[in-house]
Amino acid sequence: MFRGRLASWDAIILALTVVVLVVASLGVPNFGTSRNFTFLVLDLMPIALVALPMTLIIVTGEIDLSVASILGLASSLMGWFWNNGLSIETIIPLVVVIGAVLGAVNGLLVNALGLPSLAVTIGTLALYRGLAFVVLGDGAVADFPFTYTGWVTGTIGGGPVPNVLILIVALAVIFGIVLHATPFGRSLYAIGANDKAAHFSGIRVARSKFWLYVASGAIAALVGILWTLRYSSARADNGSGLELAVVAAVLLGGVSIFGGKGNLPGVLAGVVLLAALQNALRLQDVSGQALNIVTGALLVLSVLLPNLASSLRTALQRRKRRQAVTS
């Protein structure tokens, strides 16, 4: 039953994604062009990458809302380091390590002190964004070397496939293997469904969750770097509100907000669905505010629909049985 429900939810999302892609290709001018494909991939890159560790965190029943602020702080730091004469080859690993440390702070507050992750990461959401403005103020740093900015916006052999797709696929495969084919991944589901039983089974609950926050911080910082290079602009407000889109995509992908359920292929479908919808609407000159409405509505629907679907199914089963009995 459990497996059936998941499979059917995956199928719904996949079907919906295909429908959106087909309808948009036919109905929205310029949607189906190779140039727009490049932009679509570049647009979904931040959501897709941040959604990878977020999926693992939500599977354990926790959440990390500070990711977009870590992204912004990483962008600010990158600009500040660049202004202070560090080489880009030093800046990139340095900023990723700082992101991991910011994630570790979340991880320690949640796991060593046992605080609720929702409260902790709302706190660091404000804190890290504030620090981003302390570092760089309202200004922007723009003069990054073209070797790097060009790689991020460029495509493989000048074709339609952006270079960053390699990165997305590679990281998705790594996170997919960790979640679905390692003892660590197995333990995350057990933690999310019943952390006490996981503890009684010799699983190191707090330590496992701690490392997920570290990974989340490092990936968010990496995305901050990519974001900065893509727009050639280090700003403190980069990526504001991205956490909402990421959480929406993860839940849309069938991961339970209560933990213990969900898989990564579903999440990737959720990411594509959300990004394609936003891209198509943007091509139709829909405003940014309206895009937020779409993201918000999808978030609510992704929580609502599985509930509706399962109660509908039980109602249908009951009716079927009644008919079988009376006939």
Binding site: F2, I177, A190, A193, K196, A197, A198, F200
Partner: peptide, 29 residues
């Protein structure tokens, strides 16, 4: 509460404490 993860499958529950021993090269099949 302590012995089982009720939502997980029978097989996952049986192998939960042993999943590290069952993995080959760190991977579970």
């Amino acid at each position: 509460q302590q012995g089982l993860v009720m939502e997980l499958s029978i097989e996952r529950n049986v192998t939960l404490p042993r999943s590290r021993a069952l993995a080959k090269l760190g991977l579970l099949f």
